[in-house]
Computed example of a mutant assay.
Amino acid sequence: MSFYDEMAALADELLREFGKALTLRRVVQGAYDPGSGTATETVTDYPGTGALFDYETLGAGQTWIPSTLIEGGDKQCLLSPAAMPLPATGDQLVDGAEVWQVQNVKAVNPAGTPVLYELQLRK
């Protein structure tokens, strides 16, 4: 087991202990059916473990600054990559009854070993 494999296992262990169960949902649009006027969808859920955080407030409680990518109400998610594909913009993260849209993804991936996924989420 390499050093980064051990770090990934440690990150997963900590998120299981201090985080909670979350589901990454990927919706893929299929072929358009002109007869029904709809496109088929394939929904795939990936159960996982992560932790949600509010972004820190800036200055006098302001969390949204024009011309930046983070808006008020956005959440940061640290997600374990164990048995999880790399999330993509447009995926959804399901936390109980709440569904968040993935806005940005940062993979902590030293030497080709996924250790942690950092997501920016928005309702």
Rank of each mutant, 00 (worst) to 15 (best):
S80Y: 00
Y32H: 09
P34F: 06
L79A: 01
G73M: 06
R122E: 06
S80E: 04
A107N: 05
S67P: 00
M84N: 09
T113H: 07
T89Y: 04
E6I: 11
L58Y: 12
A83K: 13
L58C: 08
G50M: 07
A107W: 00
T63V: 11
T44N: 07
G61F: 09
V115G: 00
P81D: 04
R16S: 09
C77Y: 03
E71P: 01
P47H: 12
P34G: 11
P87F: 03
I70P: 01
T89W: 07
R26W: 08
W64E: 15
S36P: 02
A51D: 03
R25E: 14
A83Y: 07
V115Y: 02
K106I: 12
L69D: 15
A21V: 09
D95E: 10
R26N: 05
W64Y: 13
C77L: 15
C77N: 08
D12M: 03
V27E: 14
R26A: 02
I70Y: 02
D91W: 01
N104W: 05
F53L: 09
K106G: 10
L79P: 01
V28E: 13
Q103G: 05
Y46D: 02
Y46V: 05
I65K: 11
A8R: 11
P47N: 13
V115H: 04
S80A: 13
M84L: 15
P66M: 05
V27C: 07
D33Q: 09
F53K: 09
P66C: 01
L14G: 03
K20N: 08
D74N: 13
F18N: 12
V102H: 00
V27A: 10
L93C: 08
R122P: 03
Y46K: 03
G30L: 04
L119K: 01
A88V: 08
G50P: 04
E6S: 15
V94I: 15
V105H: 03
A51R: 12
A111W: 05
V28K: 13
T57Q: 13
G30K: 07
W64S: 15
D12T: 13
S67A: 15
S36L: 10
D12R: 07
Q76S: 11
A83H: 14
K20S: 09
R25N: 07
L10N: 14
T113P: 07
P66D: 12
D45T: 09
L22H: 04
V27W: 05
D12V: 01
G59K: 09
G35P: 00
G30Q: 10
F53N: 05
A82P: 05
Q103K: 15
L78D: 09
L78F: 12
V102W: 01
F3V: 13
G72D: 12
A9E: 13
G61K: 08
G37Y: 03
G112Y: 02
R26G: 01
G48I: 04
G72N: 12
M7S: 06
A107D: 08
T44E: 10
T89F: 07
T49H: 11
L119C: 06
A21R: 14
R122V: 08
G73D: 09
Y55C: 00
T113F: 04
M1A: 15
S2V: 06
D95L: 02
